[in-house]
């Protein structure tokens, strides 16, 4: 079953002489339960692609379908509701709300979904166990380590049981141990709960946790790599492709295993 479809999407910034074409007639599909990575050199349009797919930004041209719904024509209010019900976000800088405790950060969006209290408690228990958050519930974001913050952010993204999770450089601010832990959590959730994940990253090691990598360059689809063997083999495939586009090396994998 198809979870996302991007059809001939372009996105321009500026006008006339200052026109920048961030996305250039790009098309691809993501199936339910996939863990897709988006890679490419700096300025390739990775974040722009994630923004337009996650309804944060509007494409200049083209169509995007998420969970069977065309999102490019939805008005802002419906988009907000769509985001609330179908999308989860994990950001590089966590974006936890500092005034709320960990528990409140997790519960707050559920109150908007009007989820019954007993179901909220069930989900809290489930994710606090999976992401090891039980002891952090009454703490505030400024009392957490980076790794803990990102685990809370991941739990927040997953609490609403979204159809798809968009992760934007989720390990960018983490040390290698915390990054590995988080990626393992994401991979487990993807495998066990069949949660579709689309992750933007420039790091081959991080990307090696995905099932498929979409490489973009200059706003256009450059190549696609699908995992078929071990993670190590997949990593090599990614490195090769990165070398073709530019960036990445083998020592990344050796150093961090």
């Amino acid at each position: 079953m198809r979870m996302a479809e991007v059809k001939q999407v372009s996105k321009n910034f500026g006008a006339r002489q200052n026109l920048v074409r961030a996305l250039n007639n790009i098309s691809f599909k993501i199936e339910r339960g996939e863990f897709v990575g988006v890679m490419g050199p700096s300025g390739a349009g990775k974040t722009t692609l994630l923004n337009v797919m996650s309804t944060i930004d509007q494409p200049t041209m083209g169509r995007i379908y998420l969970a069977g719904q065309e999102i490019t024509t939805l008005p802002e209010r419906d988009l907000a509701e769509f985001r609330r019900n179908n999308i989860g976000f994990i950001f590089q800088d966590f974006n936890l709300l500092p005034a709320l405790s960990v528990r409140e950060n997790l519960v707050m969006i559920l109150s908007m979904l009007r989820l019954p209290a007993d179901q909220v408690e069930q989900r809290l228990a489930y994710f606090s166990e999976r992401l090891n958050l039980a002891e952090l519930m009454s703490r505030y974001p400024n009392e957490l380590s980076m790794g803990q913050k990102q685990r809370v952010a991941a739990a927040r993204a997953l609490m609403t049981r979204p159809q798809i999770v968009f992760a934007d450089e989720p390990t960018g601010s983490l040390d290698s141990k915390s990054a590995t832990e988080l990626l393992q959590y994401l991979a487990t959730i993807n495998l066990e709960d069949e949660t579709t994940i689309m992750m933007v990253t420039h790091d081959a090691f991080t990307a090696s946790y995905c099932n498929r990598i979409i490489f973009i360059k200059d706003g256009a689809l450059y190549a696609e790599v699908v995992r078929s063997g071990s993670r190590r083999q997949f990593f090599h495939q990614i490195i090769d492709m990165q070398a073709a586009i530019g960036g990445g090396n083998l020592s990344d994998f050796k150093n961090r295993l």
């Binding site: 944060i56 209010r77 985001r83 609330r84 999308i87 709300l97 969006i109």
Partner: peptide
Amino acid sequence: RFDYLTMKKLGVAEDE
């Protein structure tokens, strides 16, 4: 305002 923007991304409508 960045907190509000985070909220917006999480699906809270602008008028809310």
